[in-house]
Design a protein around this nucleic acid. Structure first.
Lengths: 203, 203
DNA sequence: TTCGATGAGTACTGGACAGTCTAGTACTGT
DNA sequence: ACAGTACTAGACTGTCCAGTACTCATCGAA
């Protein structure tokens, strides 16, 4: 009756299979039979581990969001202590682009937008622990840098948002609607030019 | 046998009903029965006017895209001849935000992203006649202004993209994931600050 | 060896929905 | 009056799918 512990092998197999299919085909495009088949498990076992399809979906997406958040957060540190802002911002921007544009995260973004009506909480969690979290963390760094006279950001949160979207928007929005691929050189160019514009306004 | 002319009343009623429901509930969330009911028309009549659900969807979305495109394009003119760039860019930015963030267009954006896998052509058309079209048109204006010494945009297309996303990204991305509402004052602030950053880099 | 639990395999239920078909009604111009 | 056409109302088919029920094999512990 009770569900399996989180680390049980079947439980993990089901989560892996479900993650793969949900990200590839979306919520509506994935059936519980497919999940069971890919996990090499009977449907009964799926339902022993997860109450229903919605629960399974929510559990997977929230876990993935948390994992993505950890990645982006890890990238921000050691910015506030920078003495060569231009260089360090460029490096940060390039890493940030690489993280956010990972195919796996782009897929997740699409899937979440698609189900935002049915799972509004999930969409809110995504935004709060994705963009919003990045913005506040980055704003903290900018404030520090402003105090140290390296930047001039009267409204650090707004500056962080400008920075974030200057870097990401061009490739991100294109990727939402078509399957283009960007070369590392192109992405680096977007990063550098974004930083250039940012510094022109906030240095 | 042949389908009705585009302006026949039933044809229009069906399109209106379908537009309403598709934008409110998405493609998968809308049934042909609901469309027929809302249009106060029999299902048979729906199928006499439109081959199938996909065709109906495509026809509506492409028509709406074209209409949205007309709106955004109409807003760009008279920028190249400006002598007071700061003021005119601000005005332009405020109008641009108001157009792009219309609830109806935000809903469309969501719906298209949700079905981008099933209708890749539709998503491509949306991007091409939405953001991309704006960018190229705006780039033309910037180039003109650069020639006239009012701006300095060595890469006008990149500058246009920076401008566009500086203005739109903050509210746009938030609206994709939650149902916040922005006051006109907030939107005007985003417009003005976006223009400020843009001019710092490209004046 | 036997018992009990686990889970694979698979059939089944109930409901949604795209698209078709039929029977009959209303309106058109000839 | 008649023919052609547009339309309604609703039944019907075939498919898909979430969730349940049931059977049978396996395997570890007593």
């Amino acid at each position: 009756m009770s569900s399996q512990p989180r680390f049980a092998p079947k439980h993990l197999a089901i989560m892996d299979a479900a993650r793969t299919l949900f990200l590839r085909n979306g919520y509506g495009g994935t059936s519980m039979d497919e999940i069971a088949a890919l996990a090499a498990v009977s449907k009964q076992t799926v339902y022993k581990n997860f109450a229903d399809k919605e629960r399974l979906f929510i559990e997977i997406i929230t876990a993935d969001i948390a994992q993505a958040e950890a990645q982006t957060q890890a990238n921000v540190h050691a910015l506030a202590t920078s003495d060569d802002i231009a260089t360090d911002l460029r490096d940060f921007a390039r890493r940030h682009i690489a993280i956010v544009l990972q195919p796996h995260l782009m897929q997740m973004r699409r899937v979440i937008i698609a189900v935002a009506d049915r799972f509004p909480d999930l969409a809110a969690i995504w935004y709060a622990s994705g963009p919003e979290r990045s913005h506040t963390t980055l704003a903290g760094q900018f404030q520090e840098l402003t105090l140290r006279g390296r930047l001039n950001t009267p409204d650090p949160l707004l500056a962080a948002q400008h920075f974030n979207w200057l870097i990401l928007s061009i490739p991100l929005n294109q990727l939402m609607f078509s399957a283009v691929t960007f070369t590392p050189a192109e992405l680096a160019h977007y990063a550098d030019e974004g930083v250039r514009v940012f510094l022109a306004a906030y240095a």
